[in-house]
Write a protein that binds this DNA or RNA. Structure first.
Lengths: 368, 368
DNA sequence: TTGTATGCGTTATCAC
DNA sequence: GTGATAACGCATACAA
């Protein structure tokens, strides 16, 4: 396929795959015409267009994005760092983001930090080597090294799932403190005064900690003290059961328990059932995440719907807009060339279900 | 930073980011030495090594992988296609795979096909533009277009989560028919003769269909006919409840129901509870996936553990081995340069729990 | 509109 | 061990 036109003075390796020159030769046009055709088929004359098209077809030409990106000094790759890929929240966000970016011809580079800031730094560094067109990271609390890298990046930086700190270019998320406060208010109005919060690994999961803090601080103002359980075993139904045990040990007359997420809450429900504790009559239970099972478990679980997919979609949309508009009037705000950061609060939704309704309460109603 | 040494005759764009030449200039060495140092620090003399190191540090040099990959004619990118990113099975596999590849400096390019073969083709085509070092796809049933692309790819192709068909280079997965057969045998030995299978969208989810077929065919040999429910609403606890309703409608004296996955099985459990059907006394229930809640729901769910993470790990390990060994004796088998395909059956595990044990049965025991 | 020339930032080859 | 220098495959400024 790839024939050397002029004998090279030095031997080179080279993937002997079909190149643009091969296509050009077969179509009897210049390589630049092929390049032009690929970018804008209508820009070449109707006489050579079909020739090029056929040559591409016959040779099975696949453009080399590496060479193209190098020459054009821009890629269509987006680097994305999430704490965990197996976490349903982030995988939903990534799925939505990937779908939208894919529609526009952008490729996702994915990495998981495992809630480790050092690994986050490493991932960002790796991504930068790929000259990504944009970067997406999770949360707004980063290593100094990471912040430096992100600041130096020639690409817009989006932070997701959390608001606050010093935004780079874009933040799409919601306030986890507000989540805690909302749950606090809900439980308080329910009449609960003996309340616990069940979390797991809240030293590294800063968002869970913020939800905890929001709940605790809100209730503190009402004179209600929250019993906090922070397990080191990771969020799972098993740890949920353990958490309930710990909470009951520390606060025997427990009336309500807010869980760091639905998975733990499910464990609490099961453990309560084992112990013969009626939910919600004797104990109100809330979760976080609105995972599929939460609406069908017994009793259905009061939880927070975090709009995970919306976050991914908005991130993609906002970034795409910036990338498309990039060619226009470059000076929007500061002399740095950096248009002021944008913060998008996608909010969340309290979904009240049976697990936090007293029997006196009316039928479960979804809050919108 | 990047200063033009010799005035270019033409204006060029170019990311004015720190380049290898900048590092070389600052370290007072040639670019070749910097390149060599980056690849093998011990290959340069101990006198200039620290100079280069410092220059890299001070300038904050980040190598441009695009240029490097182009010159070296090989990348460190792996293209991965999964049906869905929000599916816990695949996200666990991807997570494990990403971790292992990351350890060895490889980058994951991720795409979701949404169980659509056309989108799969598109994703593979896009990946090929990136000249990936290897490709990973899900399942072994592909479009003709996809097969052609994969065959032409200069990179090893791995198929995961399913065995069979005509393997390209590597398959890591297990037999879904065997899963169905295992469950069939389990339920049959339990004494169940009135059996249903609850699936969702089995037209596109070919692996679920194979599990269904395996179960049905095994039981057919015993003279037992299976009532199959195939919902179009996607697998969820809600659809699980619907499936139980449909199964009971079609087979009123139902004794056992095997579900396409744990999420549906959970819905079945809840629906049975609502209808006052005792599990396992009146109805045996099995799932697939061994999702976290399956061991703590009431009753704990008999299920199949698919070793999702193992699949991802093995894929990465096997591919890495091929990539490292690539430089060695290239001819292993056929003249095509293609060493014969390797098939790795990672198996699965039947986890017997209370949901499929009659009260007469002994305490739940995990089969290993 | 089409072709020509040049450079994108790196690796690999070869002479020193 | 070190440094020129030619590819790598393509995009783009510019001439025709």
């Amino acid at each position: 396929m790839s024939q050397t036109s002029k004998a090279p003075t030095r031997i080179r390796r080279g993937t002997n795959r079909v190149t643009m020159d091969d296509v050009a030769a077969r179509a009897r046009v210049s390589a630049s015409s092929v390049s032009l055709f690929l970018r804008n088929p209508d820009a070449v004359s109707p006489r050579i267009a079909p020739r090029i098209k056929q040559a591409i077809e016959v040779l099975g030409y696949v453009p080399n994005l590496l060479a193209g990106s190098l020459a054009a000094a821009r890629t269509r790759a987006i680097g994305v760092v999430v704490p965990s890929l197996s976490n349903a929240f982030f995988s939903a966000t990534v799925a939505a983001m990937q779908k939208e970016f894919d529609r526009h011809g952008y490729q996702l580079l994915l990495g998981a930090s495992d809630y480790d800031t050092a690994r986050e730094t490493g991932l960002v560094r790796t991504f930068l080597s790929w000259s990504p067109t944009a970067l997406v990271v999770t949360g707004c609390r980063h290593d100094d090294a990471t912040r430096t890298l992100l600041r130096q990046a020639r690409a817009p930086v989006a932070e997701m799932w959390e608001l606050g700190g010093e935004p780079f270019d874009l933040q799409v998320g919601f306030s986890h403190r507000a989540v805690g406060e909302t749950l606090a208010e809900h439980l308080y109005e329910l009449g609960a005064r003996r309340i616990a919060f069940a979390g797991a690994r809240m030293t590294s999961d800063l968002r869970a900690r913020q939800r905890c803090d929001g709940l605790r601080d809100w209730l503190a103002k009402k004179g209600v003290e929250v019993f906090v359980v922070d397990l080191q075993s990771g969020a799972s139904p098993t740890s949920g059961g353990d958490a309930l045990g710990a909470a009951l040990a520390g606060m025997p007359d427990l009336q309500a328990i807010a869980c760091s997420n639905d998975v733990m809450a499910l464990g609490v429900l099961f453990e309560a059932q084992r112990r013969g504790i009626g939910v919600p009559d004797q104990l109100a239970v809330t979760g976080f995440g609105a995972l599929p099972f939460s609406e069908v478990c017994v009793p259905p679980l009061t939880t927070i719907q975090p709009h995970a997919a919306t976050i991914g979609l908005r991130i993609a949309q906002e970034l795409l807009q910036r990338l498309e508009t990039q060619g226009d009037t470059d000076s929007t705000a500061s002399a740095d060339g950096a248009p002021e950061p944008q913060v998008v609060d996608v909010g969340f939704q309290l979904v009240v279900r049976q697990s936090s309704l007293t029997t006196r309460a009316v039928a479960a109603s979804e809050v919108s």
